[in-house]
């Protein structure tokens, strides 16, 4: 498997570390319900899924990878910092 890092180009899977679904991060004060949902209730779709990977043994960038979990096709990769997942204090989760 290869992931096209927006900074480094296509690289072998061994350089990357998987985290899980790329979900909007709740605000710190979003409350136990919102955080519990964020941590524990995950979709597990057969098909396209947005995931977080870190190019840990490469440039260190966190990536939002859109990947088909059935075919393993890579559907798009962006830097996570540009993906709008950030927590904004005072706002609940999306």
């Amino acid at each position: 498997m290869r992931i096209a890092c927006p900074l480094c180009g296509a690289r072998d899977r061994r350089e990357f570390t998987y985290r899980g679904a790329a979900l909007p991060v709740p605000a710190l004060d979003a409350g136990a319900e919102a955080w519990s949902v964020h941590v524990h209730l995950r979709e597990n779709p057969a098909g396209p899924l947005e995931e977080l990977w870190q190019h840990e043994l490469g440039c260190g960038a966190w990536l939002k990878v859109r990947r088909d979990t059935v075919t393993h096709a890579m559907l798009g990769v962006v830097l996570a910092e540009d993906a709008g997942l950030a927590a904004r204090d005072g706002e609940g989760p999306a």
């Binding site: 043994l57 490469g58 440039c59």
Partner: peptide, 10 residues
């Protein structure tokens, strides 16, 4: 230049 893995090392 490349940042990469060399036998499990950064």
């Amino acid at each position: 230049t490349a940042r990469t893995e060399l036998k499990h090392m950064m």
